[in-house]
């Protein structure tokens, strides 16, 4: 049995809340995060982390790990914003905008003040938005997200595709794990050369196995009467929480007021 990230969406303490309530809340905060100042965005990050870790009881370690992975992607884009290079003759022009730099031949590389401000703005906005997405990831099961999309009259073909992709991600991961284990058991990743060879083999085999799987999956769909429309029955029972609704509304209003004061 596998314990994937989405397991927390099915076992968290906010599971009984209607997914619509959680999704609207997260999207509202996301909208606020996109238009507010970095200080407000920092508060959004802390507040949403309290919801995800404190209220939903997602383990801090898991939440932190996913956040770190996402922040690594963010950090890779920061140097492009902060570092600038100009020809030596233009050095005097950017003196006021420079935090100090390095002369390399006929070029001057420096840390830009405006770039740094921009990096902080982008960084804070990304962190705030990431916390909103993580709240959705850890508290709303994918099946419930799809049901909301159905209610919103999103084209069926798009929802069917999302569902199939969701099923295939885990099957793909299982095949990947099995193949990798089989390769490791036979010394597949012992040296750099073997690593390259094994990785190539893994990718090609994944392709072959996926096609084989697709064929069998098509047969299974046909055997269960697939008629071009992926329909399932969905009738959940949720408990609406006044306490969480009040906190989310008051919190959002507070964020907007805070942003006006900053």
């Amino acid at each position: 049995m596998h314990h994937h990230l989405d397991a927390y969406a099915y076992t968290n303490r906010l599971r009984s809340l209607p997914p619509q309530q959680k999704l609207i809340f997260a999207l509202l905060v996301l909208a606020i995060a996109l238009i507010t100042h970095p200080a407000t965005q920092g508060v959004i990050f802390i507040w949403l982390s309290v919801w995800t870790v404190g209220y939903a009881r997602t383990p801090v370690r898991v939440y932190g790990s996913v956040l770190v992975v996402m922040l690594i992607f963010l950090l890779t884009s920061i140097p492009a914003l902060v570092l600038e290079i100009v020809p030596m003759e233009q050095r005097a022009l950017i003196q006021a905008n420079s935090f100090g730099g390095l002369v390399v031949g006929n070029w001057y590389g420096f840390i830009s003040q405006s770039g740094l401000v921009q990096a902080i703005e982008v960084g804070m906005r990304s962190i705030a938005c990431t916390s909103c997405l993580l709240f959705i990831l850890f508290t709303i099961p994918f099946a419930e997200l799809l049901s909301i999309l159905r209610q919103c009259r999103i084209p069926t073909v798009l929802i069917d595709l999302l569902l199939l992709m969701y099923r295939f991600i885990f099957l793909f991961l299982d095949v990947l794990t099995q193949l990798q284990l089989a390769q490791r058991a036979r010394g597949g990743y012992r040296t750099r050369q073997r690593w390259m060879h094994s990785t190539g083999l893994l990718v090609s085999q994944l392709m072959v196995r996926s096609l084989q799987y697709y064929h069998r999956f098509s047969l299974a769909l046909a055997s269960r009467g697939f008629n071009g429309n992926f329909q399932v029955y969905f009738n959940p029972s949720y408990r609406y929480s006044k306490r969480y609704a009040i906190e989310s509304l008051v919190g959002c209003a507070g964020l907007v007021i805070l942003d006006f004061r900053v």
């Binding site: 099961p141 994918f142 099946a143 799809l146 569902l163 969701y166 099923r167 099957l171 299982d174 799987y213 069998r216 999956f217 047969l219 299974a220 769909l221 055997s223 269960r224 992926f230 399932v232």
Partner: peptide, 8 residues
């Protein structure tokens, strides 16, 4: 695994 097609 080949037969199960939905999410839950």
């Amino acid at each position: 695994e080949q037969q199960l097609v939905a999410a839950t």
